[in-house]
Nucleic acid binder design. Structure first.
Lengths: 239, 239
DNA sequence: CGGACAATTGAAGCCGGTCAAAACTGGTGG
DNA sequence: CCACCAGTTTTGACCGGCTTCAATTGTCCG
């Protein structure tokens, strides 16, 4: 049985520092010179599902959601990227069209590294290949977790898990405690539930003292409580 | 909007022929010599979540399910492997414990290639690195699809999609038409629903003429009908 | 101040999970 | 060859979690 830490952590995802760390100084300089930095306003789309990958993106600051939109308006958010994370390399490596879209949920500075430059370095650096293979391999754990959670857990449990993940992920960044500031709809789209259901559950969690709803943000106060709600062990409290 | 073909196909997954095709004759021989073939009886477990990867597996014949078990007995199947597919390389590459388990759902011949031998070849072959990167990149599309489906689609829609995928995947293998022969419980665990719900839905699909329930197997007759039920475009028939 | 959008609350109803029991299946041994 | 048993599939009934629709309140800005 996987530990809670393993279960929740998303330290699995590729970060820029890892990406660069194995490269020679020249290679690093080469990539940096090739990069183009662009400011994306909140809600601006970075790439769109079905689009052709032309490079990879690197989040300098801000936050980005990866999501899949259905024609009826609903969208499912599969991941949130913060500072230091890379975007769009799966489709590039797989030589496919983007399977999902990415959009800024805050004003963000994002650097674009063109495909040719990235692949050129990749072809010459076995270190980079290995870094990528390791990173991709790790990411599967995340996906398996997501799938299991969506398929077997209640909305309440999924919300608890989502809050724990967000708290863990943005804790270090925020300084004193983490602010989770997403719209209710976005949070609902992460959890995979309706906005109204999400609101009611948040209410309950606040009443139970697990979280605090400050202006524009949710703060986790009682992780233990959320862990209990999340039912991580998988056993349903048989009555 | 992704095409149906893209949406459903699982030609994304790494196959042995691809794995070997870029290698030199010596490398191929080296791996073959290192491999140990073993017969697994139906229901036998190949590896277990939380276990330490010691190599990769290759399905010579038979079928294998990848799944995650919860303590309460439910399990979620994330993938079915058929002849020619590889198993267990994600965790090995990611240097992690297995996030899920694998078990034979039919008597299967499976070859095990030890970690050392596999990694030795990988370290010396940039072709293999690239093949793996490409394969892993492609697989993400599958996972994104799974997540979106589980999060936004009804059990009925998910069953339709699952049947289409199974039909497409095992069509070529079966010769004349594909036999989907899983227990109801296993099919339910793929779809992410209760066995009873699955049975009722199958009933309806049979009555509607989409499928036929022959002895021990389900046969898809009307793919178009299933596609309609699957609501692939994403628009909910607003009444 | 007012208009637009986000968040919240309320009420109704269905989908799907759960429990229980019946029908069916295949395999075993007398 | 049949009776019996264990496991699987199916059917029935119930009910609770969530979705949906609708309406109200709250909030931010021009």
């Amino acid at each position: 049985m996987p530990t809670q830490k393993l279960f929740l952590s998303d330290q699995f995802r590729l970060r820029t520092d890892q990406l660069f760390e194995g490269l020679t100084i020249e290679e690093q300089e080469y990539l940096r010179a090739a990069g183009v930095t662009h400011l994306y306003k909140k809600t601006e789309i970075i790439f769109r599902e079905g689009g052709i990958p032309t490079g990879i993106f690197y989040v300098e600051s801000g936050r980005v959601k990866k999501y899949r939109a259905s024609a009826n308006g609903t969208e499912q958010i599969s991941y949130l990227c913060g500072k230091g994370e890379l975007l769009g390399y799966h489709a590039l490596l797989g030589e496919e069209l983007y399977p999902d879209s990415a959009a800024a949920i805050e004003d963000s500075r994002i650097t674009f590294i063109p495909k040719v430059n990235f692949l050129k370095v990749l072809r010459n650096s076995s270190v980079l290949s290995n870094t990528l293979l390791k990173a991709l391999g790790k990411e599967f754990t995340l996906f398996i977790n997501s799938i299991t959670n969506l398929a077997t857990k209640s909305a309440r449990e999924r919300l608890a898990i989502t809050l724990l993940i967000l708290d863990e992920k943005f804790h270090t960044e925020g300084g004193n405690g983490s602010n989770i500031s997403l719209s209710r709809t976005e949070l609902a789209n992460m959890v995979g539930t309706a906005t109204e259901t999400l609101v009611r559950l948040l209410q309950e969690f606040a009443k139970a003292g697990y979280i605090q709803k400050t202006e524009k943000a949710i703060r986790v106060i009682d992780r233990k409580g959320l862990v209990r709600e999340a039912n991580l062990s998988g056993l349903k409290t048989k009555k």
